[in-house]
C-alpha cells in the first residue's frame, strides 16, 4: 500500500481507555496509510476499534478516559500525536475533515445551517463574516442542496436526513482539506439516499483530490467505493490490502467468515447462511495470542501466540499463522 507516499499514515497506533474496570486497549498496534485521491476503507464489527481509530486521528478521544498510548499518526510529515493543541486545532477541520454517522448529533440544533457552516470559514480561512457566509452558500450548492440561500437560514431539524448529511459533508469539505475521515457516513440513511451521498463523495473526491478514510460495517459499500481496505477485529488489523485482492482472495479466516455470512442476492433463497460461531470477545477478556481464535474453525495450538502481519502479495497482508493452508474458496 505504500508504493506512493501516503498523505496520512498511521503507524502502530495504540489507544487505551481508563474505565472503572481498569485500562482497556481499544486499538492495539494498528497501521495503515492513505494516498491523495484514494479511498481506504476500515471495516469491522462493533467494538473492533474502527471508530476509536478515527477519533484518535482527529485527537477527539473522550477526555480524560481516552489516550493515545503509542504509535505515530503522520500527516504531511508531522506527527499528530505529539502536536500541540493549537496546531491540532488548525489541522482539524482545516486540513483534515470529519464526517460523522448521525448528522443530527453532528449539527448544533439551536444554530442555523449558515451560522455553523460559516463558522468553519471564520475559524480557518477568513475574518470577514459576509465572505464566510457567501463561501458557505457556495459549499451548500457544491454538495447539491437546492436553494442554498434559503437553507443557510434554516435549522437542522428543518432538513431531511439526507440533506443534513450533505450539510455535514459541506462542513467537512469547507476548507478543502487534504483528508476526510468518514465514520459510517451513510449508515443512518436509506439506500436511495445512501446512493446519492456515496456518489457525491466520489465526485467531490475527483474534483478535490481528496484522500478518504471510510469507516463502515457494510462490505457492499467497501466494494463499491474503496481502493484499499483494512479489516479490523478486536482492536487489531486482521487483514489489509487492495479491495479486489481482499474480496477475491481473503486470507484471514475472519475476513472469509464475514464475506461468507452476508446474504447475497444471487444466492438460493432460504438456504442456511454460513455463520461465524460465537461472538466478539470483550476487551476486558481478550484471549492471549490471536484474538479470533475462539471463533476460528482453523484454530491450532500455535494460535495462542499472536500472529504477525505477513505479506500474501505485495500490499496484501494478513495476521494468520495458517493463511497458506487455508482451503481454496
Amino acid at each position: 500500500m505504500n508504493a506512493r507516499n501516503p498523505i496520512l499514515e498511521v503507524q502502530d497506533l495504540v489507544t487505551t481507555f481508563d474505565t472503572d474496570g481498569g485500562r482497556l486497549t481499544a486499538v492495539d498496534g494498528v497501521s495503515f496509510g492513505v494516498q491523495r485521491g484514494r479511498t481506504l476503507g476500515i471495516v469491522g464489527e462493533s467494538g473492533c476499534g474502527k471508530s476509536v481509530t478515527a477519533l484518535s486521528i482527529m485527537r477527539l478521544l473522550p477526555q480524560p478516559m481516552g489516550r493515545i498510548a503509542g504509535g505515530k499518526i503522520l500527516f504531511d510529515g508531522k506527527d499528530l500525536v505529539t502536536l500541540p493543541p493549537d496546531d491540532m486545532h488548525r489541522i482539524r477541520g482545516g486540513r483534515i475533515g470529519m464526517i460523522f454517522q448521525e448528522p443530527m448529533t453532528a449539527l448544533n440544533p439551536v444554530h442555523t445551517i449558515g451560522r455553523q457552516l460559516s463558522e468553519v470559514f471564520l475559524l480557518h480561512r477568513t475574518k470577514d463574516k459576509a465572505e464566510a457566509w457567501r463561501r458557505g452558500t457556495d459549499m451548500l450548492r457544491k454538495v447539491g442542496i437546492p436553494a442554498p440561500e434559503v437553507r443557510m437560514g434554516e435549522y437542522p431539524h428543518q432538513l431531511s436526513g439526507g440533506m443534513r448529511q450533505r450539510v455535514v459533508i459541506a462542513m467537512a469539505l469547507a476548507c478543502e482539506p487534504a483528508v476526510v475521515i468518514a465514520d459510517e457516513p451513510t449508515t443512518a440513511l436509506d439506500v436511495t439516499i445512501q446512493a446519492q451521498i456515496l456518489e457525491l463523495m466520489q465526485s467531490l473526491q475527483r474534483d478535490m483530490g481528496l484522500a478518504i478514510v471510510l469507516i463502515t460495517h457494510d462490505l457492499g459499500v467497501i466494494a463499491e467505493t474503496c481502493n484499499d481496505v483494512v479489516v479490523m477485529y478486536a482492536g487489531r488489523v486482521a487483514e489489509s490490502g487492495p479491495v479486489s485482492e481482499i474480496f477475491s482472495r481473503p486470507s484471514h479466516p475472519y475476513t472469509r467468515g464475514l464475506l461468507d455470512s452476508i446474504p447475497r442476492l444471487e444466492q438460493t433463497r432460504k438456504t442456511k447462511l454460513n455463520v461465524i460461531e460465537g461472538m466478539v470477545p470483550s476487551l476486558k477478556d481478550l484471549p492471549a495470542g490471536c484474538r479470533f481464535q475462539n471463533r476460528c474453525p482453523f484454530r491450532i495450538d500455535r494460535c495462542a501466540t499472536a500472529p504477525a502481519l505477513e505479506t500474501v502479495t505485495p500490499g496484501h497482508e494478513t495476521a494468520c499463522h495458517r493463511w497458506r493452508e487455508l482451503p481454496a474458496r
Binding site: S160, G162, M163, D190, V191, T192, I193, Q194, A195, Q196, L198, E199, D218, L219, G220, V221, I222, A223, E224, T225, V243, S244, F247, S248, L259, I262, R264, L265
Partner: peptide, 25 residues
C-alpha cells in the same frame, strides 16, 4: 428498480448502472 440498483454489492469491479433517484421521500 431504483431501490435494487442502489444496493451496494460486495462484488468489487462488477460496476453496474446505478439509478440515483433525485430528492427525498
Amino acid at each position: 428498480r431504483a431501490l435494487l440498483s442502489a444496493i451496494p454489492r460486495p462484488n468489487p469491479g462488477g460496476r453496474r448502472e446505478r439509478i440515483v433517484l433525485q430528492g427525498d421521500v
